[in-house]
C-alpha cells in the first residue's frame, strides 16, 4: 500500500469551538465541531472509504485490475475516486443523476466513471442499480457496500471517536450527528460509550421524508442501512430542513465556517440538545464544505 500518498492526510482533523451561534447557552455548556471537511477528499467519508478499501486490499477481494464500484450520494464517491487515484485502482460510482454538479466534476477530475440512477428514486435508486451491476458482473467489481459494511462505522470507531475524546481531554458529555449511512454515529458512539457509558450519543434525522438536507437519510421512508442500530443510541432527534439551512448560513457569517447543509443541520441539532443542559461539552461533525453545493 502506498502509505505515504495523500491517504496519510486522512483523519486527525481539528476540533473547532463554536463561539457565536452558542452565545445564548449557559456559560458551562460548550459546543465543538469536528472539521471533517478538512480531510483531503473534502468530507468525513474519506475515513470509511479508506478503511473499506484497505480491507479489500488486505483480504485480496480488491485485486489489481478490479474496479471499485459503489452507490453514493456524492461524498463517499469523491473519497473512493481520490483514494483510487492515489492507490492505482479504477473507480465507478453509481449516483442519482441530480447529485450536485460540483461532486460530479470533482469525482470525474480524479478519473472516476459515473453511472447515473434516476433522480426520482434518490439514493435508494443508486443502491438498487449498483446491486444490479454487481450481480451482472461479480468479478469485475469490488463493491465496498458502504451502507452495510461494518468497516464503515469501524473506521470511526478506530479514529474519529478516539480523536474526539482526546481533543476534548475526555470532557465530552454528548455526541450528536446526522445519519446518512449512520456510520459516523454508530462508530463514534460505540467508542465513546466504551470510554464512558455516561456519554450520551444521539442521531439527528431529517424531520420529514421529503427534505433538503442532502446527505442525510429519513429512515422510515428509505432503505435502512444494515449498519444502523438505533438501540445503541440514546435517542434520535428530528431536524427540520429550514432550521438546518438557517444554521448553515449562520456558520458562514458568524463562525467563518462555509460548510454543507448536513453540517448546518448537525450544529442546529447540537444547539437544540445543548439548550436543555446546565453544563456539558457537546460535539458534532462538520461533514463537508459548502463548496460542494455550488453549481
Amino acid at each position: 500500500m502506498k502509505d505515504s500518498s495523500i491517504i496519510q492526510a486522512i483523519g486527525n482533523t481539528p476540533l473547532i469551538k463554536l463561539y457565536s451561534v452558542t452565545k445564548d447557552l449557559p456559560k458551562k455548556v460548550e459546543i465543538y465541531a469536528k472539521a471533517e471537511l478538512l480531510n483531503p477528499g473534502g468530507s468525513v467519508k474519506d475515513r470509511p472509504a479508506l478503511r473499506m478499501i484497505q480491507e479489500g486490499i488486505r483480504t485480496g477481494e480488491l485485486s489489481p485490475g478490479k474496479i471499485i464500484m459503489d452507490p453514493t450520494s456524492g461524498n463517499t464517491g469523491v473519497a473512493y475516486a481520490m483514494i483510487g487515484s492515489a492507490l492505482g485502482y479504477r473507480v465507478e460510482l453509481v449516483v442519482p443523476e441530480n447529485v450536485s454538479r460540483a461532486r460530479k466534476e470533482i469525482a470525474k477530475s480524479y478519473g472516476a466513471k459515473l453511472t447515473f440512477s434516476s433522480a426520482m428514486e434518490g439514493s435508494d435508486g443508486a443502491i438498487r442499480l449498483s446491486q444490479k451491476l454487481k450481480a451482472e458482473n461479480p468479478d469485475k467489481y469490488f463493491m465496498p457496500n458502504q451502507y452495510n459494511n461494518h468497516l464503515n462505522p469501524q473506521a470511526h470507531y478506530e479514529s474519529t471517536g478516539i480523536e474526539i475524546y482526546e481533543q476534548t481531554a475526555g470532557r465530552i458529555t454528548h455526541f450528536i450527528t446526522g445519519i446518512g449511512t449512520s456510520g459516523t454515529v454508530m462508530g463514534v458512539g460505540r467508542r465513546l460509550k466504551e470510554y464512558s457509558s455516561d456519554i450520551k450519543v444521539y442521531a439527528a434525522e431529517p424531520a420529514e421524508a421529503l427534505h433538503g438536507l442532502e446527505g442525510l437519510k429519513h429512515m422510515e421512508s428509505s432503505i435502512v442501512p444494515g449498519i444502523y442500530d438505533p438501540s445503541q443510541l440514546d435517542g434520535v432527534r428530528p431536524i427540520a430542513t429550514e432550521v438546518g439551512y438557517e444554521m448553515t448560513e449562520r456558520l458562514a457569517l458568524e463562525e467563518g465556517l462555509f460548510v454543507g447543509y448536513s453540517s448546518g443541520a448537525n450544529v442546529a441539532a447540537a444547539l437544540e440538545l445543548a439548550k436543555d443542559l446546565k453544563e456539558g461539552v457537546v460535539v458534532t461533525i462538520l461533514c463537508d464544505s459548502g463548496t460542494r453545493y455550488l453549481c
Partner: peptide, 8 residues
C-alpha cells in the same frame, strides 16, 4: 417533483 439526495 425531485427530492434532495439522501445519505452516503
Amino acid at each position: 417533483i425531485v427530492p434532495a439526495i439522501a445519505g452516503g
